[in-house]
Amino acid sequence: MPHKIKKFLAWLFSGKSEKASHILILPASFWLAFFLVVPIMLLLVLSLAQLGPYGTIIWHPTLENFRRVFTPLYVPIVARTVAYCGATAVLCLLLGYPTAYFLSFYAGEWRDTFLILLMIPFWTSALVSIYSWIIILGRDGLMNSVLVGSGALGKPLDVLNTPFSVILGLVYFYLPFMILPLYSSLEKIPKQYIEASYDLGAGAFQTFLKVTLPLSLPGVFAGFILTFVPCLGDFLTAEFLGGPRTYLIGNLIENQFLMAQDWPFGAALTAVLLCAMLIGLYYYQKLEAAELAA
């Protein structure tokens, strides 16, 4: 190896120069800039363009695409998305809170195992879990064959392709995103606070309401943001567990890019989504900062 290169490498890995550090981070930064920032910027620009004939794009700035998002044709879809994702976040909270509480205070030595068990469904492909919900909820699915077979029902229920099945699928998928922040804020509560509350004569319920719950609120808010925001962009769940009447913004975006070929409008929808995400992220960061300061 030529001497010069060797000397350069020695300098690069010396840990003495900040310039060397910037150079070492540069490839990763470049990668993100090229495959993440530029595409998003392009989308924002595209959202201001116009659709020409045959799916071509006319680069003449307009806000028409954004106006269209809020026309009677699309407002129901936007409203439905917000409603479904809100319902999903609330249900995740109600279902997840007791589990997070259990993990923080009662799981004992099994805690790590339970936490890993919680993450496994999250790491498996969303397609796989959606598919299993189809087997369970479908018209000749497991649920119906058990209910009809046992005589509990006269004829099978049409659960699939309803708001219920879509929200169920979303709740199932986003539960870990709720439980983990809840768990981490519950776990931080000093046990003495709870004991002190009991010593002062409060019952279990009163202690929960006046001590534990208020102290876990940062986790509740963080969990709400972490479920609500990614949920806004989901399209697979509604595509398989719902029908055209339960389509969400995600499905609309998918449709604009792959079927309708109206990319400027699709980009405007994506920009709206991105805005919601940034607002969520802003509040999430603020929460984190407040947690660190406390």
Binding site: I25, A28, S29, L32, F35, L36, V38, P39, I40, L42, L43, L46, V229, P230, L232, G233, D234, F235, G250, I253, E254, F257, W263, G266, A267, T270, L273, L274, M277, L281
Partner: peptide, 19 residues
């Protein structure tokens, strides 16, 4: 460097497609 975790994947998908 954590940015890819924060952006919804559908945004990345359509962004990269247009790009």
């Amino acid at each position: 460097l954590n940015a890819p975790l924060l952006v919804p994947e559908i945004v990345l998908g359509v962004g990269l497609l247009s790009f």
